[in-house]
Amino acid sequence: MPTPPPGPWPYLLDEARAYPSPHNSQPIVVRVLDAGRAELLYDLERGLPAENFGIPFGQVCAGVYVESLATVAAPHGWSVTAELRDEGLDFDADAHHQPLGTVELTRTAITPQAQADLAAFRRRRTSRRPYRSLPVDPAVLAEAGAIAAAAGHDFGHTDRRELVDRIVRINQETLFDDLRNDAVHAEILAWLRTSDRAAEATRDGLSARTLLLPGPLLGFAMRHRGMWDLPLAGPLLRRIYLNTMRGVRELGWLTGPFASPLDHVEAGRVFLRIWLAFTRAGVYLHPFGTVITNPRSHAAFTDAAGIDAQGADTEADGEADGERMAWMLFRYGHSAEPPRALRRELSEMLLDRDGVTPWDR
C-alpha cells in the first residue's frame, strides 16, 4: 500500500475533488511536494480541445479547483496561496500532464463564514431539473453582484420573460448546432455515460441520470445526430430535451477580464464563490457553457442581453475596453434536489514525482 501524502493533504484533496468541471471531466491532478506545498497539473487527455474556448475554460476549471481547495481548507484552519503560471494550455504538447503552478498551505483562524462555505460546498450541485416559478431573493442577487464586483467582474441578470425565453431557445439551438460540428460531436460522445453501470465504471462524464434523460434514448439520439433534423423525430427529441427547462424564471451572466490565462483562473474562482453564495441561500445553478463556447450562440446571447462584442454591458458603461467578455451564462432558481454526479477516487487524481499515480505502481 503506498504511503499517503503528508500533512493535511489527504483529507483536503479528498474533499476538494467534488469541484465542478466542464462535462464532469475532472482534469486537475495534484503532485504533493511536502506537508505544505503541492503542484497542480492539467490532464490534457481530460481537456475539451474541440470547444472554441477549450483552452480558456481549462484554466477557468483550474481556478474553480483552487477556490474549491481554499474552501475546504479554511474550516480546518488552513489558507491556500496559489502561484499559477500565466501560460495557456497546449493540447498539442507531448506531455500527458501540463503544469499549472503550485499551492501552499499556511495556518489561519477558523471563521463562521468558512464553515458556512464548506457546508455549501458539500451541498452544491448542478440542477438540470425543472425549476419552480419562484423568484430568487434580491438579497442573494445583490450578494452575487458584490462578489463579482470585488474581483472586477459584473453580474448581470434578468427575469424578463421574453428575454429569458429567447436565451433559453439560444441554449437549445446550441446543442443542435454543436452536434453538426464533427469534432465537438465526437467530444460529447466521449463523455456521455448512458447507463448507471457506465457512470459507475468511470465516475466521470455526463451521465443520463444527471442529465435527467432516458439513457438508451440519449445514446441513440446522440450517436444518430441526423435524427434531430428529421420532420417527426426531431421535434420529439427537442421537446424531451426542453422538458428539463420548464420553470426557468431567471438567468444570470458574468462579464469581466478574460484576456489572459490568469484572468481565466480568477474567473473560475469568482464563479465558485458566487455558486456557493447561491447554494447558501438554497438556490441551484445550471451553467449554459456551450452558449459561451459556440461563437454563433455567444453572439446571439450578447446581442439579446445588450452586451457588446467584447463583453462590456452597453447599458452599464457604454463601451468595452477590449479585454472584457461575457464569459459565463447560467440559469438559477429553486428546484427539487438533483442527483449528484460521481467523482473519481482521490488515488486517480494524485501523481508522484515520476508523473504516475502511486497506486499504478
Rank of each mutant, 00 (worst) to 15 (best):
A341V: 08
S68L: 07
P216T: 00
P358M: 09
Q115W: 02
V291M: 13
G289F: 10
V356H: 15
A300S: 07
R239P: 02
G58K: 02
D159K: 09
P138C: 05
A320C: 02
L189I: 05
A309Y: 03
R46S: 00
R85S: 13
P49T: 01
G219N: 14
A183T: 03
V66A: 11
L179T: 00
L217M: 14
A149K: 12
G77S: 04
A336F: 09
P295M: 05
R280I: 10
E173S: 13
D117M: 12
P27T: 04
S127F: 11
R273H: 13
T3Y: 02
P138Y: 11
L213M: 14
L342Y: 07
A62M: 04
H153V: 03
G234T: 06
R269C: 01
G219H: 15
V64M: 14
E104T: 15
G226F: 13
R128N: 12
A119E: 13
L218V: 05
P112V: 08
R340H: 13
L141D: 03
A199K: 03
V356T: 15
G219S: 12
A119P: 07
N171Y: 12
R37V: 05
A304H: 06
A38E: 04
G282S: 10
D34T: 10
A116L: 15
A190H: 08
L41F: 10
A309S: 11
M349D: 01
Q98S: 08
A198L: 15
G145E: 05
I55K: 12
A198I: 05
E173M: 14
R180L: 08
P235F: 05
E87L: 11
E323L: 00
G256A: 02
A73V: 10
A320L: 01
R128P: 10
L69S: 01
G152K: 01
R249I: 09
I274W: 00
W359E: 13
L237V: 01
T255Y: 00
E337L: 15
Q172V: 11
R225T: 14
E200M: 06
D317E: 09
E104C: 14
P130L: 04
H153K: 00
L12I: 07
G219W: 14
I292A: 04
V356W: 11
D303G: 15
A18Q: 15
R37K: 07
G226N: 09
G247Q: 11
H334G: 03
R223N: 15
I307K: 01
R280Y: 10
V136C: 11
A73W: 09
E143F: 00
H23A: 12
G152Q: 02
G36F: 06
I110K: 09
R238G: 05
Q172D: 12
T71V: 08
R344T: 12
A198P: 06
E104H: 13
E345Y: 06
S133C: 05
A16S: 12
L175K: 06
T174P: 04
T244K: 13
E250W: 05
A82E: 03
E200V: 05
R122F: 12
T210S: 15
F53H: 06
M245I: 01
E266G: 02
L232I: 15
L329T: 06
L175Y: 08
